[in-house]
């Protein structure tokens, strides 16, 4: 069963609806003790990374999440929280990935936010089982995680190559919104639910 970290930064209704459409059971994680109830943990998140980090800190869940050995999936800002730092609010984040979350550079002739469907190139990680390469996912973000070959499991391009998905041990992150990415996104959520630690 999937536990959703409920820290007040995001559109949880869309996520829970997507899980329901896939017949995946879920519950909410409000306290450290709740983490034990679930086999898989999702950290959702939209909005401001710095503000989201403050909210997550207020729940007291940062330490316990970092110590988890079960599969954890950060979505959008939830993914960015797993990195060291975000330029959004010059915020220090969880530091699970030694990566930085940076603002897209408008001098590259791109519009910000990066909003819409973009294709990804993935590296056959189990999270993308059954997802064809170059499949498009729905992105909406102004900040991105720098491409790093060690942690990158899917790459997208918007002015610059960036990580559409990352993995380190049991920690996963996706910059796009699987709950809004059609059938491919629903498949990814289903894949996550079957990952073993």
């Amino acid at each position: 069963m999937i536990g959703i970290v409920n820290y007040g930064a995001g559109n949880i209704f869309s996520l829970t609806s997507a899980l329901e459409r896939q017949h995946l059971n879920y519950g909410m994680v409000n306290t450290e003790a709740d983490l034990d109830k679930y086999t898989h943990i999702i950290i959702p998140g939209v909005g401001h990374a710095g503000a989201a980090m403050k909210k997550l800190e207020q729940t007291g869940l940062v330490g316990p999440i970092k110590a988890l050995k079960k599969p954890v999936l950060g979505i959008c800002v939830g993914m960015q929280l797993l990195t060291d730092h975000s330029e959004e609010g010059d915020a220090r984040l969880m530091g699970i990935f030694p990566l930085k979350t940076r603002l897209f550079d408008k001098n590259q002739g791109i519009k910000i936010p990066h909003m819409g469907w973009n294709n990804i190139e993935h590296k056959n990680n189990p999270l993308f089982d059954g997802v064809a390469n170059e499949t498009q996912f729905y992105f909406v973000h102004s900040y991105f995680i720098e491409y790093n070959p060690i942690f990158d499991i899917a790459t997208a391009n918007y002015g610059t190559p960036f990580s559409a998905a990352i993995q380190k041990d049991n920690f996963y992150g996706v910059q796009f919104h699987p709950e809004k990415s059609g059938t491919a996104g629903e498949l990814l959520l289903k894949n996550f639910s079957t990952l073993t630690p």
Binding site: E179, K180, G182
Partner: peptide, 11 residues
């Protein structure tokens, strides 16, 4: 809005 969100897998 809720009814739409329950059914729809696009934004």
């Amino acid at each position: 809005v809720k009814s739409v969100a329950r059914q729809l897998n696009i934004p």
